[in-house]
């Protein structure tokens, strides 16, 4: 899952996958803006089947690859 997300972020930002660390701060370092975030939300919904609610939209869930993975795991555990 981590690799899938990294690949996706790399594809939409045109940034080499290897340069995005698991704890890179995606917003603070200017990798992701509003459009990136919206693309990611669509990707999570369509490719990974995870719907992002309004209340999920916070830094804790989206600031880095690690945060996104943890968010997805939490969401999936709620479903199961």
């Amino acid at each position: 899952m981590k690799d899938q997300i990294k690949t996706f972020i790399s594809e939409i930002t045109f940034i080499e996958k290897e340069t995005i660390a698991d704890d890179t701060l995606l917003f603070e370092e200017g990798i992701f803006d509003s459009m990136g975030l919206l693309s990611l939300i669509t990707f999570l919904d369509e490719e990974l089947g995870v719907k992002t609610e309004d209340s999920d939209l916070n830094e804790e869930n989206f600031q880095s690859i690690n945060s996104i993975v943890a968010f997805l795991e939490r969401k999936k555990s709620l479903v199961n």
Binding site: F27, D33, I41
Partner: peptide, 23 residues
């Protein structure tokens, strides 16, 4: 967080509905 936009519709009867906009 970078901001995301919401659309709000104000219906003819005065009620409102807002939804987050997909990209």
């Amino acid at each position: 967080m970078p901001p995301v936009f919401y659309v709000t519709v104000i219906f003819a009867d005065g009620t409102e509905k807002s939804e987050r906009l997909p990209m």
